[in-house]
Amino acid sequence: MNWSRKWINPVLDKEFRLRMRTPRAMLSVMLYILALGFIAMGFIYMTMYLNNNNGGTQQFNSGMSQMMFYVLSFSQLLMIAFMAPALTAGVISSEREKQTLSMLLTTQQSSMTIILSKLLSSLSFMALIVIATLPVYSIVFLYGGISPRQIISLFLFYLFIMLLLGSLGVMFSTIFKRTIISIIVTYSVGIFIFLITGLLYLFLSSMWQQIYSGAITPPSFSWVGFILGLNPAGAMLSLFEPEISKSVFHMNGSSMNTDAPIQLWVEFALVYTVVIIGSLWISIRSIRPVRRRKKHKIMSQEKIMEPSDNIIN
C-alpha cells in the first residue's frame, strides 16, 4: 500500500481531484502570485524612484527590504482574508445545492472525516498558493534585513489564519443551506475579526490616552491591549516586533520596563484556537441529523424518541 492510499481518505482524494481538475485552480494561483508580484515591484519602484528628493535613483538597502517584507506580509494577510471564505464557505452547502450531500452522508464516512477532509483540501489549496509566493519573498532576502525564522513564523501564522477563517467558513456552510448566505456571514465575521477589533482598539486606546493624558501617575497597565490581541494585524506585528506587545499594554510610556502580560500573537493563537475547535465541533455535530446515541441510551432501546432528542450522539 502506498502512502497516499493510507493517508488520503476517499473524501480528501475526491476533493483534491475535483479542485485541481478545473482551470480555475491554476488561474487562481497565477493571479495571486501576479498580484503579490505587482505589490513587490510597485514598492521597489516607489522607494527607489518616487521617494527620492535628489531626482536620481535611491539605493535599495536592508531597511527598505525590511519595510517591503512588512508590506508584502500585510498585503498577503489581506489577500488570505479575502480568499479563505471564498474557498471554504461553500464546501458543504454546495454539496447540498448540487444534491450530492445526501448520498455522501449515507456512506460509511464519519461526519468528522467529511468535515476535516473538506477543510484540509481547502487549506491545502490555500497553502499551495501561499507557498507559491515564496519566490516573491526571495527579493527580500536579496537585500537582507529579514531572518528565515521570521519567514517561517509568518507562514505558520498565515496557516493559522487560514485555519481560523476556513473553520468558520465550513461551520457556516454546514449551518446555512445556501452558499451565498454562508459566504456573506463568513465575510461578515472576517470583517469583524480584521477590521472591527482594530477600530475598537484605536477608539478605546485614544479614549484611554485622553483620560490619563494629564494624570501625574498614569496607570501602569492598560487592558485595551487585549483587544489588539484579537486582531490579526496586531498579532502579526507582534511576531515581527515583540516590543509592540509591551507598548500596547503600557500606554503613555508608563512602566515600559515591565513585560507585557502576554504577547499579542500568543493571545491571538489561544483565543482563536478555541474558536477553531468550537467551529469544527459545531460543523461535525450539524452535518448529520441522525447520529449514534450514547451508550446508556442504547441500553434502553425500545424508548420512543422525543422531538427534543433531535441530535443523537
Binding site: R292, D309, I312
Partner: peptide, 27 residues
C-alpha cells in the same frame, strides 16, 4: 436512509434501529 430524524416511533433495517445504529443501517 438515516437522513431525517423521526419525531416519534421506530424504524428498523435488518434489526437495527435507524436512530440508534445509523452506521450499521448505512451498511
Amino acid at each position: 436512509a438515516t437522513l431525517v430524524l423521526p419525531s416519534s416511533g421506530t424504524a428498523r433495517v435488518g434489526g437495527y434501529e435507524v436512530t440508534e445504529y445509523p452506521k450499521e443501517v448505512r451498511k
